[in-house]
Structure formats: C-alpha cells, structure tokens
C-alpha cells in the first residue's frame, strides 16, 4: 500500500524512476491473461512496482466494480495499463468504468507475437518496462 507520507516516493527516488519519485500516485495494471504477452504484462508491471515506479493495483477488482477500487483509480495521478494484445481488455475495464486518467501500453505493439504455451523472456519484459517508464515520464 502506498501511504501518504512519502515512503514510496523515497523508494522511487532511490531507483531513479519517474513515478512515485516525483510524488505522483501512479497505479500499474496488467491484463494478466493466459498468453505469453499477458505474462509479459504481469512481469513488467511487477518489475515497475519493485523498482519504485508505482503501485500495482487489482484490475480484477475494477472489473468487478468494487467501489473503493474504482475511486482509487479515479483519484490516482496516473493509471498505467499494460495490455498484452490488441483486444485491450484492461483498457476496456477502464472505459466501461468511465475512468479516463490512464495511459495504455500494448505488448504486441513491440512486435512480440501473441502465443499460447510460450514463456516470456527477460528481454521482452525489459522492453515493456522501458516503454512504460517513458509513458510515466511523459504523462
């Protein structure tokens, strides 16, 4: 949990990231589906979280319409959505809830092919992390 006393910001500063380091409340979401690109989205979101770029949050909770979670997303400074493929399920969760303060990243936009039964690689995860960091910095 991010507290309001700047602990996350301090951690972020140590990592040189641009999200919580700037004092912003950045929430991270992964589609976490069944294909390789979804695994990449999940691993990238966790990597971003552990490097202090933001706090990973529960996409399923938003999809389920949990009121407090929806309000948490609405009040965030930035929501970073990492979708695996062009179906864009995570983004649609936001659109359905009427939440607009997000930036979407799609793993397949990096030229990574969607496949079942294929494990993600560290290099693929790193590519997504770099893209997400840029999105956080630009937003």
């Amino acid at each position: 949990m991010s507290d309001c006393c700047g602990k996350g910001a301090a951690d972020g500063a140590a990592s040189g990231c641009c999200g919580e380091a700037s004092g912003r409340n950045v929430l991270l979401y992964a589609c976490s589906g069944g294909a390789n690109v979804a695994e990449i989205s999940d691993r990238a979101a966790r990597e971003l979280m552990f490097s202090g770029c933001g706090t990973m949050f529960c996409l399923a909770g938003l999809g389920a319409g949990i009121q407090g979670m929806l309000q948490t997303a609405k009040d965030a400074d930035l929501n970073i959505i990492i979708d695996g493929c062009p179906v864009g399920c995570a983004r649609k969760v936001f659109d359905n809830a009427g939440i607009t303060n997000y930036r979407q990243i799609r793993v397949t936009d990096l030229g990574i092919e969607k496949a079942k039964g294929v494990r993600s690689t560290d290099e693929q995860v790193s590519q997504v992390v770099v893209l997400a960091r840029e999105a956080i910095a630009e937003a």
């Binding site: 949990m1 991010s2 309001c4 407090g68 979670m69 948490t72």
Partner: peptide
C-alpha cells in the same frame, strides 16, 4: 482499510 478497496491513504468514505 484494504477491505474498502483502498490502496492509497488517506481516504474518506
């Protein structure tokens, strides 16, 4: 607090 779905504090309900 987390039962409310809140991950960032403070919050008002």
């Amino acid at each position: 607090i987390m039962k409310y779905g809140v991950m960032v504090t403070p919050a008002l309900a």
